[in-house]
Structure formats: structure tokens, C-alpha cells
Amino acid sequence: MNITTQEKPAELAICARQLNLWYGTFQALFEVDLDIRKGMITSLIGPSGCGKSTFLRSINRINERLGYVRINGRVELFDQDIYAPEVELVQLRKQVGMVFQRPNPLPTSIRENILFGHKLHNKRSSRAEQDEIVESALQQVLLWEKVKDRLHHKATTLSLEEQQKLCIARLLPVKPRILLMDEPCSALDPKGTEAVEELIWELRGRYSILVVTHNMAQARRASEECIFMLMGKVVEHTPTHQMFVTPAQQETADYIEGRYG
């Protein structure tokens, strides 16, 4: 029995096939094929300009705001083609939350930050309902105990680490299925980094998480699978422990040993 469950293909959160992307005439992604499993933390590593952020941004289609982006190939989230004509970007972005390099809380209160997304997508909600949403979101990011007495304070008065946690919490009320994180710890000090990494680890299972990082140690500590990209191509995609112990490709080995990048 055990063998059959292992042979059954894992459920996929993200499936990219033959994905090519151009910024104007510059091709940033080449024939990217990736299967990213549901409920896992997958990290994307590679030197600057290798296309990892570009790939991340083609999953919530935020790239398209730049008018000169051209894409071909296929990206499916949970078996649904997200470049199909009937896709509503608002629905897509609701289900694919994104966390940025620099925490970007809105210049309102902590409470309003959490409720922002909820209010965008829901007509009316009672005070009690809102209270519950705020508490549950902050509980999930391990921030509730710290800020429960100052929910009406400006979000920008929090420390960077807390701001970044708040930015993650802010996504949760609209019930995303995928969380994209673009170097979520690079603006934080080591202690903050550790705290946010712990949080990401905590969220594993409930959400499918894709983390772009420059920090090799972070990829190693806080992800289950790891993708190495180079010059717009996927070089290697293996379980994290395997990539860092026995990389299959020479380029991967060179990169993780710090020979370039």
C-alpha cells in the first residue's frame, strides 16, 4: 500500500510548461518546466538576473503591468490555466498572495492593514466578524500576543520584522492558496530573518509557498524543495537536502559553494 501512495503523482500547486517570457526583446525565461507541489515550501535560488523573480511574478501575472512583457507557454495553478482568457486577475491575485523584499504595510493601522484585502473582496461584515479575522490572521503569523493591545497603532510603528509578518498576515483573510515571497528576509536583521523563517516554516502545509532567496543558508534551512535557476533556465529541481548535499549539476554545485553569483 505504501508503495502505491508513493507512486501516485503528488498534487501540484504550480505547473509551468514551456514557459518563455520576454521583456521587450530581452528573453528572461527559457522553456521553463516546473512542477511545484502543494502545501510545500519551495525555494528558488540563483544569481541575480537568473529569472527567479520573473518566474515568481508570472504566477500572479503582476509582470503584465509592464506593457512590454510577452509570454508564451502554460502556467497552471491547481490544474487551471491562469493565462486562459476567462481568468479574472482580481480572483487570481486574491488566491496568490505576494510578499515583497521590503515590508510594505499600508500607512494605516495594524487592524486596517489586516482588513484591507477582506474589505476589498467582501461587501459588508460585522464588527465581530472583523475582530475574528484580525485575531486569526495575527495568530497565524505569531504576532497576536505582541500587538493585540495596539491594533489601532500605525502599522509603520512596528519593527521591520513585525511589519513583514504583518504583510504576510494581511494576505491570509482572503484565503490565498499560494504565497509568493520575493526575498522576504533580505531587509531584516539576523534575528528578524530567523523569526520570519520560522513563521514561513509554520505556515507550511496550509499554504503552498514559493520563496525567492539570495540566501543559500535560508533556502537550506527553510525549504523542502529547491529550484536552481541560471540565465532564465531551470538547472535543477530536487528536495532541498539533496541539492545541498549531492547536487546533480556542476553549475549548481559551483553556485551553492559560492564560486559565482
Partner: peptide, 27 residues
């Protein structure tokens, strides 16, 4: 008004007008 605010809103599925009305204009 910092661009990051707009990014934050768009990525939560806010339309341009929702972003302008709720975040950009008040600031």
C-alpha cells in the same frame, strides 16, 4: 505616494480605482 503601497494593493487583488480611492488619494 510610495509605489510600494500600490504594489501591495494590486497584489491583494485591488483594482486601480480601489487602490487610488483607498490608499493613494488619502495620502
Amino acid at each position: 505616494v510610495p509605489h510600494a503601497f500600490r504594489e501591495a494593493c494590486w497584489n491583494m487583488g485591488a483594482t486601480r480605482w480601489q487602490t487610488i480611492r483607498r490608499v493613494v488619494l488619502p495620502n
